[in-house]
Every structure is written in structure tokens, then in C-alpha cells.
Design a protein around this nucleic acid. Sequence first.
DNA 1: TTGTCGGCCATCGGCCGACAA
DNA 2: TTGTCGGCCGATGGCCGACAA
Lengths: 321, 321
Amino acid sequence: MKLSSSGQGQQAHEGENKCLNSELWHACAGPMVCLPTVGTRVVYFPQGHSEQVAATTNKEVDTHIPNYPDLPPQLICQLQNVTMHADVETDEVYAQMSLQPLTPEEQKDTFLPMELGIPSKQPTNYFYKTLTASDTSTHGGFSVPRRAAEKVFPPLDFSQQPPAQELIARDLHDIEWKFRHIFRGQPKRHLLTTGWSVFVSAKRLVAGDSFVGLLVNFCHRNEKNQLLLGIRRATRPQTVMPSSVLSSDSMLIGLLAAAAHAAATNSCFTVFYNPRASPSDFVIPLSKYVKAVFHTRVSVGMRFRMLFETEESSVRRYYSS
Amino acid sequence: MKLSSSGQGQQAHEGENKCLNSELWHACAGPMVCLPTVGTRVVYFPQGHSEQVAATTNKEVDTHIPNYPDLPPQLICQLQNVTMHADVETDEVYAQMSLQPLTPEEQKDTFLPMELGIPSKQPTNYFYKTLTASDTSTHGGFSVPRRAAEKVFPPLDFSQQPPAQELIARDLHDIEWKFRHIFRGQPKRHLLTTGWSVFVSAKRLVAGDSFVGLLVNFCHRNEKNQLLLGIRRATRPQTVMPSSVLSSDSMLIGLLAAAAHAAATNSCFTVFYNPRASPSDFVIPLSKYVKAVFHTRVSVGMRFRMLFETEESSVRRYYSS
DNA sequence: TTGTCGGCCATCGGCCGACAA
DNA sequence: TTGTCGGCCGATGGCCGACAA
């Protein structure tokens, strides 16, 4: 299982199976994103998955897609594996899940205690700041909010005038970035100067995007606290490009056919979950699903929808039917 | 049909259905790329298509894919539509084709005369040059090969000293680029100076990539000759990234299922053809296929392979079984 | 014929505190 | 507390012919 890792000292490049930091992944994904636990049972909604893929390929789900009579509107699976990833180009975070459909008999098993919902670890010593025009311009550096700097950055030596230090931080791909951190100006403020513009241009940041800083503590192997960084892109007016690899129809068919085939042959299938791409959760813990169904006093089979407000006041949905 | 267009004066942005210049598309695709004609019959090879998609997603075709007993190894279709496209990010050219599987009775029809192969129009007044380290460095401009400049660029006024002019050219997305074209130095040579570095950084060109220049003549609407430009990326050591949208297994299943569904219901399906992505042609004119089969004295159903050497001495393949 | 270089100058990047929101 | 600006200086961009491959 490669859910997370800690103490990953140097750049690891084992094919595409990079072990990226779980806390950093969550810090970039946002506070409302919660991944199911490996080994537990989950409900997979082909409809919600279709909507995410359709949103990504800028395509409406239409009626060209054949029916898959063997594929129920929700599929109870065991979550065999979850790996966290970040897009090499955009740093967009996503998760890859391996789902094992369960037979009707396996579904009847009683709940394991651990299935009652242990949320994945959310980051604690972290901050994010939406970048201003001044932050991203070539004219200057990055103005660090005072509380953020004090909470997350290593303390400065105030006997120096001005107090300054070199910050070393690693991103989702375990690439190292160096910044000059200085406390100066009148009134005094924390700034990142040298190194900042390289970061902005490398990540192609614009005003409205966000910087994420995270302090993690690796207890073992004598390693000290380490600074991690990430970004969150502003939700732009969806300039999704056509895929040029496979037609969106074929993708939607493939999605359904893969799930149906896995269900029929009792084998695993793989899905990608992009928490920031669309507001649809399509893999949710079975325990949460059962609770929701019980709570709303509807029988399984009726259409319902649960709404949650996220931090950005958008909406997350669960699918059922 | 949106195969091509001419006299497209200003930037057109009709959704994603841009009419891009057919000659320019071919100039960027390379001289060996030839698209089948709309309305003719073609042979579609799911196996070759799978290999292209697998190459793009950096995945080997393995045995996880279910069999589609209804899907024959080659499918005779009518080519309903072909549109030429270019990736918004990379300028990579590709074609979208709509294929209509034919019933056994329709397949028995005799050939139409037009099906005997009218190749699509190849560009005439065009050149390409592989960019050198000096071309792509920030230190200077672009050194234009003399014959290329004389053949493709508007003639300079040699009464000026030095002779110079402003070149205006449009790319695959119909975006305008301006360059200062000057004939100077000792010995004299053609150079693109002002404007060149903007182009290099916008297209993210590196030494080894190629610049394509094309002179087209729009006869109607009183338009004069127009200069078009494009690029060809060097074939890099395949840094294909995982898709993060759909698993490669689902994509391969979707590809097969879409074709099988179209064949079963007598409806259209859509494929993308990336001529520079992989050396596999998987949609070829029926006439060419029949000729090849006849020529090599094998019966339909035997495995055969036709080899052609392309300009870059790579290999193009036809698939059959 | 054309790829690379040194020379030269204009422009931009980038660090600073002032000032105000 | 922090976003934007003018001032200032050094780094880089970018145009030129020289020279050689």
C-alpha cells in the first residue's frame, strides 16, 4: 500500500509510483476532501463518475451511451488500494483507487468496527494564501501573512538586522525549492524574496492562485521538522481542452464497461478521483452511505442527494438512485 | 463537413470547431501523413487503435481487457467526417474521424471511382527547419535558410539598406505572430529578430524542434498570399504522463466497446488519429487495403504487415489479422 | 551558406522603504 | 497588518558584425 509516506528524504523517482506526503496532498486538496480508508467497503456510483469525466472532457452525458443492464446504479466494493498523486504539469492533486466489487454474499457481512469512518489525517500546521497582483508580479516578492510565517516557518534569529534565513521546502513531487525569508520594511513584515519568482514562473502561478505552506514533523530517523509547499489553482472558467486521445463517448463507455466487467468477473477496476475538478463524490464509504439512507428515511432505490457546503461554499454531492 | 477552409480572415472561435488550414495541418503532420477522403470506405483496426492509445497513455496492452466477440479484428466503415485539429497546449496536430460501420450487404457494393484514392492536398510552397541552439537561445534571433526565405517569404525591397520588412503569419489556431525579417550581416543572411523570442517562449520551443513556414494563396475574396506557420516537436524520450482522468484499462475497454456498440447498432463512432504520436495507422482506405491484400497474395484473414519508410526513416504500419 | 561568439546598450528583474488602505 | 508604488542598480535580453565550419 502506498497511501502515504514519511521521511522521504531525497527525490524518489520509482517510475510513476511516487510516495507523496499525505498531509500535503490534503492541504492542497482542501479541507473538505476525505478519502475512504483502504480495506473498507465503499459505494461506487457510475453516474457520478460519468459526470466527473464528462466535466473534465467538457462533454455532457448524453444518450449515445449504451445501457449496461448488468451494471447497477451503485456498486458496493472493497477499496483495495488508494494512492495519492499530483499532475506533473499542473500540480493538480488526484487519487487513484482500486475497487473490488463484492458478491451479494460478501455484501451481507456485518460491518467491521474500523469501517465506521476514520477520516484521513488532515494537516495541522499549515496555511494558505491567495496570491495578490503584487505577489505574482515580477516587480517584487511574496508577502507572507504574519501569523502564517510565525506558525509554519522556522523562527528567525532576531539578533540579526534585518532577521533573515534561507527556507528550503519540497513540493508534491519532492522537488526542492529555496527562498530567502526576510523580516524587514517599515512597518516590518515577512517576505520571500530571492527564489520566489523562479517558483512563480515554474508553477505558472497567477494572481488568484493560492500558495500552501505546511510544517510536518518526521519523528523517526533523526529528521527534524520539514517545510513542504503546494499550490491551489484558482477555479478558472473551465478552459478544458478536447482530449485528442479518445472520444469522450468512448471514455464514458469505457468507464461503464470497465465497472460492469469487473462486477461480472469479480475483478478489480481502477478509477481516478479529482477532488478539485468537479463537485461530485462518486466513491463514498459504505458506512456513510448507509447512515445517510437511514437518516433521511428513504429506502434504498429512491433518488436522494446529500448536500454539504464546502469551504469555498460550493457543493459536494453524493449520487444514488 | 469541416475538412478544411480557406480565406479564414480573422480569428474564428466557434466553440471547438475551428476551421484550420488543411495545407498547414499537413505541413505540420509531415509529408507521409495522408487522411482518407470523406464519404469513402475505410478499414478500421481496433488493434492498431489500441496500440496508439496505449502508446499515448504509456501502457502496454495487456490481458485485462475483456474480449468483444462481436467486434471483428477489422471493421469496414464509411468515413462520415474528418476534422483536423491542433492541441491548444502543444500545437500537436491530430484528426477526428466519424466512422459508420457497414452492414455485410453494404460492404458488397462495388467501388465508387472516387474511392481509388485521391490523396489529400500536400503543401507546396513550404519549408521547415530544425532549430539550432542559436535559434532558440535568448541571445539572438532565427537564422532563416536562404532558399526557404526566398521561396516562402514575401520578397524584400533591396533598395533599402539593410533590406527589412515586417512579417505577419498565423498559426494553426489562427493566432497572429509578427516578426522583423531582415537581410544583414557579413556575409548576408536572412534573419527573424524582433518577435522571434516571444514566439519561442510562447510555444516553448527547444533546440531540435522544427519551424514550419507555409505560403498559401487564397484566390477568392481579393485576398493576397498569406504566410502561415507551425511547429513540429522533436520526438522526445516519451515523457507521457498518466492521464488522471480515466485509467488506461478503461480507455482501452471504451475504445473496443464503442466500436462494438457502433457495429451492433449501425451507428457512428468517433476516433482520434495522432499521426506523430505513434507509428500506427489504424484507419486506412478500403481500396488501399484491398490492393495490399491482393498484391501480397494472401487471403483476407491472414496476418500481414505493410512497411513504408517515412521521411524520418521511422516505420508506418497497417494492421490486419 | 549558416552556427556561434564577443561587443554593446536598452530593458527588465528584483530588492528596498514609503505610504496608505 | 499588508498591498502597491517609486527609486535604484545589476542582470539579462537582444541586435550587430566577426569569424569559422
